[in-house]
Design a protein around this nucleic acid. Structure first.
Lengths: 258, 258
DNA sequence: CGCTTCCTTGATTTATGTCAACGTGCGTGG
DNA sequence: CCACGCACGTTGACATAAATCAAGGAAGCG
């Protein structure tokens, strides 16, 4: 489960990788999930996947590449709500909403699995275990938004950037990236500014500052985290409980026994 | 459904009121929901309902009163993630997480319905319709967090306050409050500051400014919104699609046919 | 080439935070 | 009953983080 051949290379499917943490899916669930994720679609960098206020076209799962979710204000400024990484879902419960609250753009070339929104609702009938797993994914998304609120609300520019980068690294790891991959953050400074509620000028100066004190490298338009632990120390990043990865044993037992 | 006698007065149950919008619950679902919400518990203002990092004790639904959800930083400052109003859930999918990411305090005297977290997971087996309705509630929560990110990230202090107050009003209305009730915001300025990522001094000055231009009244430690439409105009508050209330007809049909 | 996008830097303005002091109402314990 | 502490609101003076304005440079691309 969770791996597939692409150009002869055995590749991780990040959503499966994420769900593996849960340790509740059984063989049938995995098979069902693989069926649902069978349809793949490629999108080039820059594609608008979803427009603010439009109807949900489909439920999508990011298999590879980065995307971003944003809200545009009347004056044209935008606020990036969060970044979407391999293993993240788009419009998971889209069947339950009449319109999208955010726009979504693909940032890099990306591969998405696509299925009708209604199929997700059917999952709950066919496999409560898989349904619970999807609620867990949705709950994690919400926790990342909480972290984003804390960052923007209470941290200064440098700390915000450091904290965001560590979250992204953490999520890349959860999706199955190796340590080296997870230290690379391919974001333009403009995007960081739009995500963290600051001007691009100030984002630039803050990145430079982090670079100056050795916590960040800037190479070919992407950032490298040379020392994640030092960075975590710098901004008090804590993923022990703020970003939960587990499920209580009792729940796991009740789901697997079912 | 959704009403009960309290001191001889027929009272709205806000979660039911919220779910009524969906128009998918059938008689059995409503009965099941009422069974689950049968156990009520009173808490006085100031009670700590949940500590950051603790295990989820139970799933709770706010029946009356206000609460707040927050994260505390190492230096003691805190960021309020959001406010909880009648009809909001606490730890809805708590069964799926090993620990709480946030603390929750009761702000006013409050009544909560309480049930074991595991019962929520069982709902998905017993009634996919009710399960979908709960996912919709969870999805709405997430949208409120998105709005919070936009506020803190891109609006200045006065606009943030105006926007937050309008969201709270909107949510009070959804929970069944009447127009008059929904114009009353019983929050201390310190709380507004902690929620909107500003100092209490600045929150005070901004509230005064809103009062000066006639968009806000301050009475006995609570705020009144004398003209919600003017306030919405002032801060470009838009609840048409940003805060979705509906569900596509197709989904409703597939759920009710089931 | 000339466009565009992104990054960079300096000068200046503005929004917001910090510090300090004081007032008010309220509950509590003597 | 009063005295006290406490939480909250208020205001002024000042410091600082961040936005804005402006200009120019580097890289990619038709």
């Amino acid at each position: 489960m969770g791996r597939e051949n692409v150009n002869g290379v055995r590749r991780i499917v990040p959503l499966h990788e994420r769900l593996r943490y849960l340790q509740v899916l059984q063989h049938d669930d995995e098979a069902l999930l693989e069926t649902l994720l069978a349809v793949r679609q490629d999108y080039p960098a820059g594609t608008v996947l979803q427009q603010e206020g439009s109807q949900y076209a489909q439920t999508r799962i990011l298999v590879s590449g980065w995307a971003l979710r944003y809200v545009t204000l009347r004056d044209g400024r935008r606020q990036i709500i969060n970044f979407l990484l391999p293993g993240d879902t788009i419009g998971l419960f889209g069947a339950l909403f009449s319109a999208c609250s955010t726009g979504i753009d693909v940032l890099t070339d990306a591969v998405l699995a696509e299925l009708p929104c209604a199929d997700v609702i059917d999952i709950f009938r066919e496999s409560p275990r898989l349904g619970a797993a999807l609620c867990w994914i949705a709950g994690q998304d919400e926790r990342y938004l909480e972290q984003q609120i804390v960052r923007i609300g209470r941290l200064n520019a440098c700390l915000r950037i450091a904290h965001l980068f560590l979250e992204l690294r953490h999520r890349l790891l959860i999706g199955g990236a190796d340590q080296h991959e997870a230290q690379r953050i391919p974001l333009a400074q403009t995007l960081i500014a739009d995500a963290l509620g600051m001007s691009h000028v100030h984002a630039n100066r803050s990145c430079r500052e982090l670079q100056r004190i050795g916590l960040l490298q800037i190479e070919n338009g992407e950032f490298i985290l040379p020392d994640p632990d030092a960075l975590a120390e710098y901004c008090n990043f804590d993923n022990s409980y703020a970003i939960d990865e587990g499920m209580p044993r009792s729940t796991r037992k009740s789901l697997t026994d079912f």
